[in-house]
Design a protein around this nucleic acid. Structure first.
Lengths: 143, 143
DNA sequence: TTAAGTGCAAAATCTTTGCAAATGT
DNA sequence: ACATTTGCAAAGATTTTGCACTTAA
């Protein structure tokens, strides 16, 4: 599938230039079911893109609300597309993230529901982040 | 309050030697309502303890199930005591962590309940980690 | 006494910064 | 042409490793 049009719009909406690095990164993110880490991305890009550029690309995308960061079980940042309601000022990625403890993949379980949380007196909830650890579909079958 | 006896027992149960560094770190952790980061701990210990020793102390405690790590909004590791059911082989810290976006403190909300999550077919849940972002009691009052 | 723990120096990683060259508009 | 973006080199920050010295048991 070709998402070129979608990506062009996305970059234009965020006042970002349409560079080849950005298209490549967007393509990789789109092609994956699970979130991807910076080192993995780096490996996939090979020598075509400088590591520094990748760092900058990811942080730009994050600032603009195009992607979001999920920390895996080891504290490594993984990146995935944000839901369409995110923007530069607010992020809404309150879905469940599933971190497979075997293959370390992170999946965004968009349709898994989090029931409302009641906090103690005085605490104000702004957003939340639920990470579930366990075995993903694939690793579950293999073992 | 003096927790010396409790700490002695804790270290003995885990086949760890009772060194002054370990007592100091345990005291700091016990004295705090919220989880504490490695840099904060380092600052509190001053020059008395080498940074490397602190790293090793924290990772030993973590392996033994004495403390657990919570990643804050910036991905910095914060440490707090585990519930008493944790051990070397299994961790059970499935309570809610509250990360204040103003003072960045992390509180373990032990009595806040997480309702059961239903995962898609094929996924197996092992443990989960819910981080709520917002304003803590103190910061809520001030603002 | 001796295994575990510590401190120091140095290596290995990871991330950021400055600046000149390249690229998109 | 001009503002952004990129690549390279280098600085900073963080974490790990090796090894000799110290300490708890």
């Amino acid at each position: 599938m070709n998402h070129k049009k979608e990506f062009i719009e996305l970059l234009e909406n965020n006042q970002l230039k349409k560079t080849s690095t950005r298209f490549t990164v967007l393509n990789i993110l789109k092609s994956r079911e699970s979130a991807i880490s910076q080192p993995e991305l780096e490996a996939m890009l090979g020598k075509k893109v400088d590591r520094v550029t990748l760092y900058r690309t990811l942080s730009t995308f994050e600032e603009k609300g195009i992607i979001h960061k999920v920390l895996n079980i080891n504290g490594t940042a993984n990146y995935a597309f944000c839901s369409s309601s995110c923007n530069e000022h607010e992020h809404h990625d309150e879905h469940v993230h599933f971190n497979c403890t075997k293959c370390l993949s992170i999946f965004c379980l968009d349709h898994t529901i989090i029931s409302p949380i009641t906090l103690p007196e005085g605490y104000i909830l702004k957003s939340l982040n639920l990470i579930v650890y366990g075995l993903c579909k694939k690793c579950n079958q293999v073992s």
